[in-house]
Amino acid sequence: MPRPEGFSYRRFDDGRVEIVHRGRAAATLRGDRAAKFLAAVEAGDAQMVMARWTGAYKFGNERTARSHPRHQGGRR
């Protein structure tokens, strides 16, 4: 599975944290969630933490899902 990339975050004076993915806002966190996010970023791999918090990461089932009958009629 490829490593997530393209994430960054911005902290605002009012305590809010905005997670940005490839130049677009992916999530805005406030209060306790923002504090937990900042602690997680400092403790671990920042790119992976941001991918998990936004839900924008691979789950490992993409190859299996590609062969599902629901995906056979459309474009690939």
Rank of each mutant, 00 (worst) to 15 (best):
M1T: 07
P2M: 02
P4K: 10
P4C: 11
P4H: 11
E5F: 14
S8A: 14
S8Q: 13
S8W: 13
Y9M: 02
R10V: 15
R11M: 00
R11H: 00
R11A: 01
R11I: 00
R11L: 01
F12D: 02
F12T: 01
D13V: 08
D13T: 07
D14K: 05
D14I: 02
R16H: 11
V17L: 04
V17C: 06
V17H: 01
V17E: 00
V17K: 00
E18Q: 13
E18D: 08
E18T: 12
E18M: 08
I19L: 08
I19T: 03
V20A: 03
V20L: 12
V20H: 06
H21R: 14
H21Q: 13
R22P: 07
R24P: 05
R24M: 11
R24T: 12
R24A: 14
R24G: 10
A25Y: 00
A25I: 13
A26G: 04
A27Y: 07
A27L: 08
T28V: 15
T28S: 12
L29Y: 12
R30A: 08
G31I: 04
G31W: 04
D32H: 10
D32W: 07
D32N: 06
R33D: 15
R33K: 15
A34N: 07
A35W: 04
F37G: 01
F37V: 03
L38K: 06
L38D: 06
L38Q: 08
A39K: 09
A39W: 02
A40C: 07
A40E: 12
A40W: 03
V41T: 13
V41C: 13
E42F: 01
E42I: 02
E42S: 12
A43Q: 03
A46W: 11
A46R: 13
Q47T: 04
M48C: 05
M48K: 13
V49E: 10
V49S: 03
V49D: 02
M50Q: 10
M50N: 02
M50C: 13
M50P: 03
A51P: 06
A51N: 07
A51K: 05
A51C: 10
A51Q: 03
R52E: 10
R52V: 06
R52Y: 04
W53K: 01
T54Y: 00
T54P: 01
T54Q: 02
T54K: 01
G55R: 04
A56M: 14
A56R: 11
A56E: 08
Y57D: 05
Y57F: 15
Y57K: 05
K58P: 03
K58H: 13
F59E: 12
F59S: 12
G60S: 08
G60P: 07
N61C: 14
E62R: 07
R63V: 15
R63P: 13
T64A: 15
T64N: 09
T64G: 12
R66M: 05
S67T: 13
S67A: 06
H68M: 13
H68G: 03
P69D: 00
P69Q: 00
R70T: 02
R70Y: 10
H71A: 06
H71N: 11
H71L: 07
Q72Y: 04
Q72G: 04
Q72V: 03
G74C: 09
G74L: 14
R75P: 12
R75V: 14
R76N: 04
R76Q: 09
R76C: 02
